[in-house]
Write a protein that binds this DNA or RNA. Structure first.
Lengths: 191, 191
DNA sequence: GCCTTAAAGCTAATGACAGTAGCCGTGGAC
DNA sequence: GTCCACGGCTACTGTCATTAGCTTTAAGGC
């Protein structure tokens, strides 16, 4: 038997393929093994169990999302950055609904690190807004709640009515931006 | 064998018991059958399958939540009503995290009706705010996104930091209330 | 008070999964 | 060329959901 050249990362790749093509519920060890051309139990040589695989997938997606956000926020500050952040978040969700859904269903503790990277981006954006300490935490939570809530409802078909979603999201963006405590006016970027 | 006196509703009751005591993932047909004192296949005489049971549970929880919200909103209007609505929503989620989690994971189509009842409450509140048509839809979506996003993050342990959650939610409430398009000034409550 | 019958149980069985135990070939290090 | 750890395999177990088909129960008509 030729070796299949598997690795934890390769397995996560296959899981992501399945997620993109058939949705997150289709990720079973036998489905992954099928794509790998391998018997199911062989996967256990590379991942501890299904839960660990799910966690790895989740981390991968979080990092992918974090990269997009970091990129998009770069070079902007204040409201500009916030708007870019929110648009990029929804953009990712709409482009990869399965991945987003997979991201949010995995056990907490192991995700702290990847989740932290995500939150740090928000904090950086808000920092440029002049928010620090508890104020920044509260603002981060509101931003996350709004953005995540909209994402979940949109991907799960919670918004049924034929009214433009972009407009709704624009209103949400407005609410967040104008609801934030005093921008400390570092006018534009730079020092 | 004495009959167990089962019915779809009785089965939903048992499922809710399990959800409250062991969480939504513990709801299996054998667990329910165990509590009912009945063999697993007997349940199929009352519910079509597990998916249908989950849907029924979801509807039940939605209606329970809708009742609370209706009650709490009654007699208030404008910002007052909005605030009451948001507090009651989070109150329910905190009091019954398992039920809320169970509510949001069930197939879409059959839930339209119960979901509609929930949304109608929001629309009624916003109506008193002077919002109609597309504006009301956009506002409803933002409100739902914020409230639901916060609920999901809170119940799933997404908010790790030791900073007061009540304060964060208060900020979110502020953002929503002050971000809504023009209140039509039904000045204060009363009339 | 009996008889019929449909509803409500039951047992047995299947098929999809996750996960475990233990065997064996392969290929890189030496 | 030899060795051995790694990566793959087969065989098996236990848990679920779900189906088929048999039996019991109790309610209603006579």
């Amino acid at each position: 038997m030729a070796r299949a050249g598997l690795s934890p990362d390769a397995i996560v790749d296959l899981a992501l393929q399945i997620i993109d093509e058939e949705g997150p519920t289709a990720v079973t060890l036998s489905a992954v093994a099928g794509r790998a051309g391998v018997a199911t139990p062989s996967l256990y040589k590379h991942v501890r169990n299904l839960a660990e695989l799910n966690t790895r997938v989740s981390v991968r997606v979080m990092d992918e999302l974090a990269d997009r956000l970091r990129e998009v926020v770069l070079g902007h500050s204040g409201a500009q950055a916030l708007r870019a952040f929110m648009n990029a978040w929804r953009g990712y969700v709409v482009a990869h609904p399965g991945r987003y859904a997979a991201m949010i269903q995995a056990s907490r503790p192991e995700l702290a690190e990847a989740g932290g990277r995500l939150i740090d981006i928000v904090l950086a954006v808000l920092h440029a807004y002049g928010l620090e300490g508890a104020d920044a935490i509260h603002a981060t939570r509101c931003l996350r709640a709004a953005v995540h809530g909209f994402a979940v409802l949109e991907t799960e078909g919670g918004f049924g009515l034929p009214v433009d979603l972009d407009d709704s999201y624009e209103l949400l963006t407005q609410m967040i931006i104008s609801g934030l405590p005093k921008p400390a006016q570092d006018h534009a970027d730079g020092r």
